[in-house]
Design a protein around this nucleic acid. Structure first.
Length: 427
RNA sequence: GGAGAGGUGGCUGAGUGGUCGAAAGCGGCUUCCUGCUAAGAAGUUGUACGGUCAAAAGCUGUACCGAGGGUUCGAAUCCCUCCCUCUCCGCCA
C-alpha cells in the first residue's frame, strides 16, 4: 500500500500518478477520511490523557474522599464519552485501511503512459522465429503425442484442468528441474513452501482484498490455494526486520498455482495456456531501495536465460501504466513465440513492487548504520511458467511427421531422448 | 481429536491490580581504560501513530507484555472468547 504520509503531503502528485493507470483511482476520499480519523484520534487521546491523570491521583492516596469520589465520576463519564469517540475512530480507521489496501501502486517514472496492452513497449527480441509450414497448435500436437488428456482432466475436475501423460508429465518435471537447478546455481535459495496460505499472506502480497473472487478458498478453513509462489515466499519474512547484511535475499520456488480465472470466460479455452492449476517456478528478491532497480533488471535477465537455454524465441515488453499489475511500480513481461497463434504470448512477468508489498506485509530491514528499520523492496518474476513453456516447446520444436524434437538442454533431464514420437500410451 | 502447560522487549527470564514500557542477565551501540587481543568501567538501547520544528535531532502526547472483548478511577497482572506454541495420548504419509 501507499505511504499515508506521502498521500497527505503530496496528494496532487499521487493523484496524478494514479491517473496514469486509467483505473478511476483517487485518493481524495482517503485524504478526507484521514482528516476525520486524525481528529477522532486526537480527541480519543485527550480523553485518555485525562483519565490517566485521574487514576494517577489515586496512587498517592492523599486526596480527601469526596474529591476522589468526584474524580471517579469524572473518569467514568470520560470513559463513556471515550467509548463513543472510539467507535467512530475504529470505524474510520478500518474504512481508511480498507481504502488504502484498494489503491494500487504508483507507476515508476520510466513506465510509459498508456491505457491498455496497446501502450506496452517492446524492449527487445531474441531468437529466430522458426519457419514452419502450417504450424499446428500445441494442443493438437500434444494430444496426438499422447501427452495431453484434456477430456479426462475435465472428467476428474472440471474445465481448464488437464492431465499430463507419459512424456508430457516427464517434460513438465524436467522443466521444473532445469529451471530450479539453473536459478539455484545463480544464488537463488530454493524454497518449497506450503501451497495453502492464510488470508494475511494474500493481503500482504496484494491479491486481497481487491480481487476476492480470483482465488480458491477452502470451505472449512481460513486458507487459500496459492495463485503463485510469490505469495508464500514473499510472506516468509512477514512482520520481520532483517539485517541489511543479509540483503539481497534471493529465492526460487516451485509450486503449483491455482486460479479461478474469473473473468477469463472465452479466453484461451482450448489448450494448455490458461488452466485453473498450473506449475510455475517463481523468483523472489528482497532488496534495499538502493539496489532494487538493478536487481529487477538482473532478475528479468535470469528469467530470459531460461528461454535462451531452451532456444525459444521471445521478446521483452515494458508494460505501460494502464496495463501494469496492481502492486507493481514497473513490470517487464516476457513473451514467447507461439507459431500456430502467430504471436507472442506471456510466459513470465517480472515486477518491481518498490515498498508497496513491504508495507502491507511488514517487511523491513535494519540499515547497516544502525538507523531505524526501513521498508525493503520486493521483486519477483516467473522463471518460468512451466505449462506455457511446455506448450511453446511443442509448437516451436514440431516436425512435419508429428514428432517433436527435445530441446538440447532438456535431453539430459529426460534420459537422453532426442525426439518425442507419436505413440499409443493409454487406451 | 482428547488432556495438560505456556505465550512478556533482539534473546533468556522476573513480574498476580497503581511506584511497570516493564527487574536482572545476555546481546547491540557509545565513551573511557589498554601496545594489540582478551578482560574491565560508565552510559545507552523497542515499535507505531500524532504534536512541536523548514527539516532532522530534540522535546512531547497516545498506544503496544499473542489477538479481541469485559471488570475497575486504574490491568502485563482478574474474567470471557479466539489464535498460536510445547508435552503426553489418539490418528496418520
Amino acid at each position: 500500500m501507499l505511504d499515508l504520509k506521502l498521500i497527505r503531503e503530496k496528494a496532487d502528485f499521487v493523484e496524478a500518478q494514479l491517473a496514469r493507470r486509467h483505473g478511476g483511482f483517487s485518493i481524495k476520499p482517503i485524504v478526507e477520511l484521514d482528516g476525520r480519523y486524525r481528529k477522532a484520534q486526537a480527541e480519543w487521546e485527550n480523553l485518555n490523557r485525562r483519565r490517566n491523570e485521574i487514576s494517577e491521583s489515586f496512587k498517592t492516596g492523599k486526596l480527601p474522599k469526596e474529591e476522589l469520589e468526584a474524580l471517579r465520576k469524572e473518569a467514568s463519564s470520560a470513559k463513556e464519552k471515550q467509548d463513543q469517540v472510539n467507535e467512530e475512530r475504529v470505524n474510520l480507521e478500518q474504512e481508511l485501511n480498507q481504502m488504502l489496501l484498494s489503491i494500487p501502486n504508483l507507476p515508476a517514472q520510466e513506465v510509459p503512459d498508456g491505457e491498455d496492452e496497446n501502450g506496452n513497449k517492446e524492449i527487445s527480441t531474441w531468437g529466430t522465429i522458426p519457419s514452419i509450414k502450417n504450424p499446428r497448435h500445441h494442443y493438437e500436437i500434444g494430444t496426438d503425442l499422447g501427452i495431453f488428456d484434456f477430456e479426462r482432466g475435465v472428467k476428474i475436475a472440471e474445465s481448464r484442468f488437464t492431465v499430463l501423460m507419459n512424456w508430457g508429465a516427464k517434460i513438465e518435471r524436467a522443466l521444473m528441474n532445469l529451471m530450479l537447478d539453473t536459478h539455484a546455481g545463480k544464488g537463488y535459495v530454493e524454497v518449497f513452501p506450503p501451497i495453502l496460505v492464510n488470508r494475511d499472506c494474500l493481503v500482504g502480497t496484494g491479491q486481497l482484498p481487491k480481487f476476492e473472487g480470483d482465488y480458491y478458498k477452502l470451505a472449512d478453513d481460513d486458507l487459500y490455494l496459492v495463485p503463485t509462489a510469490e505469495v508464500p515466499v514473499t510472506n516468509l519474512y512477514r512482520e520481520e526486520v532483517l539485517e541489511e547484511e543479509k540483503l539481497p535475499i534471493l529465492h526460487c520456488a516451485y509450486t503449483p498455482n491455482f486460479r479461478r480465472e474469473a473473468g477469463s470466460a472465452g479466453k484461451d479455452t482450448r489448450g494448455y495456456i490458461r488452466q485453473h492449476q498450473f506449475n510455475k517456478i517463481e523468483l523472489v528478491k528482497f532488496t534495499t531501495p538502493e539496489t532494487s532497480e538493478e536487481e529487477h533488471e538482473k532478475l528479468t535477465r535470469d528469467a530470459e536465460t531460461i528461454l535462451e537455454m531452451l532456444q525459444l524465441p521471445y521478446r521483452r515488453v515494458l508494460l505501460c501504466s494502464g496495463d501494469i499489475g496492481f502492486c507493481a511500480r514497473k513490470c517487464y513481461d516476457l513473451e514467447v513465440w507461439f507459431p500456430a497463434q502467430d504471436k507472442y504470448r506471456e510466459i513470465s512477468s517480472c515486477s518491481n513492487f518498490g515498498d508497496f508489498q513491504a508495507r502491507r506485509a511488514g517487511l523491513k530491514y535494519r540499515p547497516k548504520d544502525g538507523g531505524k528499520p526501513r521498508f525493503l523492496h520486493t521483486i519477483n518474476g516467473s522463471g518460468l511458467a512451466i505449462g506455457r513453456t511446455l506448450a511453446a516447446i511443442l509448437e516451436n520444436y514440431q516436425n512435419d511427421d508429428g514428432s517433436v524434437t527435445v530441446p538440447e538442454v532438456l535431453q539430459s533431464y529426460l534420459g537422453g531422448i532426442k525426439r518425442i514420437e507419436p505413440q499409443l500410451t493409454h487406451a
